[in-house]
Structure formats: C-alpha cells, structure tokens
C-alpha cells in the first residue's frame, strides 16, 4: 500500500522554543478516544492553545497570525513520553510536514516517519540560529531537502545536514510501505518460526 510521498519544503517556520515537549502536550489523552486517524489537528497542543472554556490563548504561537508554515521548530527532546501515534497524526493533520528540534524521542521519531512527517534533528547551535532568524523575520523561509538531507536558512544562508535511516528515506521519497516490505520476506518469517 503506497504511503504519503514527501516533497521538499520551502516554508516559513513556527517557533516553539520549549524543551521536553511530551506527547501529552501535543495531544492530551482525553482526545485519544477516536477510532480513526482523522481530525486530531484541531486538538493539537490543546491545553496550550485554548483556555478550558475553548477560548484561544492569545500568547500561544499557533494563535498568532504572524506565524504560519509547514515547519514546526521546537526545543530539545521533542515528543518524549507516551508512544501515542496520535501526536504525529495531530501534527500532520494540522498541516506540518517537518518538525525541527535538536533532539527527538525515539518512539515519536518512528511514528513521525511512518506518517510522512519528517523529523529533522539539528545541532543546538543551528536550532538557536533558526529561532533567532524567525525572531528577526517571522516570514523568513526555511528549506528542507530530503534528497540532499539538508536544512537551509534563507535569512543567513546557513545550512546543516541531517541524518536519516536510508531505508526510511527511500520510503518517504518513494511512498514505500513497511508492511509491504516485511511481507515480501514472508518465507523468511515462516522459516524462522519453523526453526523455533
């Protein structure tokens, strides 16, 4: 089954300079009662984004018209805590294609990659320079090239390369699917079982 194909991105970025953003913040547990993958974007960062009466919190970045784009830039250790894939679904459903941080939690990283949401891990210094660039000009463009594994800041001309597992990279670029790949090895699985 083909999955979403990742295209290179050139977009302004949304800054969220908070560290250790856990998946309970990205999508609180009380919104995990759905039985489909759709519609989680409206509750993305729910309790940071809205008051308990549903009024938007003016100081939260997603409520500030100045900031928009397909790239979320967040503090280190993004996506820690619960394994809920709903966090990746919520970010993608909201409209993000890329999350940039200086460190990602393992399970979140895997979940993101399985949903066409690219986690781009940069150095602490580069992360700081993205936040600084956005502070100077909220509309400054950030460019992410998956083929070349680079992230480029138009504002300063700074560029950094990022790591990605070559198999997952091929999956994102070509829309390959993990289950198709494993099932193409079905004989090996059955052979493994018969040797137990």
């Amino acid at each position: 089954m083909a999955t979403k194909i990742f295209k290179n991105i050139q977009s302004p970025a949304v800054p969220l300079p908070v560290e250790n953003i856990d998946t309970d913040q990205i999508i609180p547990a009380r919104f995990l009662k759905a039985t489909t993958r759709d519609g989680f974007g409206s509750n993305l960062f729910r309790d940071w984004r809205y008051e308990s009466d549903g009024q938007p919190k003016a100081d939260f970045v997603l409520n500030q018209p100045l900031y928009s784009g397909k790239i979320l830039v967040a503090g280190k250790n993004f996506g820690c805590g619960s394994s809920r894939e709903h966090a990746a679904w919520a970010l993608a459903d909201y409209g993000f294609d890329v999350v940039v941080s200086s460190f990602f939690a393992d399970i979140f990283k895997g979940n993101a990659l399985n949903n066409g949401l690219l986690p781009v891990q940069v150095s602490d210094g580069f992360l700081e320079s993205i936040f600084a660039a956005i502070e100077k000009d909220a509309h400054t463009l950030v460019e992410v090239d998956l083929e070349k594994q680079t992230i480029f800041l138009h504002h300063s001309g700074k560029e950094e390369t990022f790591e990605i597992n070559p198999y997952k990279k091929a999956c994102l670029i070509n829309g390959y699917d993990d289950i198709d790949y494993i099932l193409s090895n079905k004989e090996l699985i059955e052979e493994f079982e018969s040797n137990q």
Binding site: S83, E85, I107, N111, N114, N165, D178, I179, L183, I189
Partner: peptide
C-alpha cells in the same frame, strides 16, 4: 518496548517489526 499504531498494524500483519538495533 512500546510502539506506535502503524507498528501495531505491522506486527498484526506480520508478527514482525522493522527495527534498528539500539
């Protein structure tokens, strides 16, 4: 270890998981 829902589907479908050695 814990996995996401796409991987839950993967294990249901194949009894296997694609995983890099930590």
């Amino acid at each position: 270890f814990g996995i996401g829902t796409s991987q839950v589907e993967q294990v249901m479908a194949t009894q296997c998981l694609l995983q890099s050695r930590p």
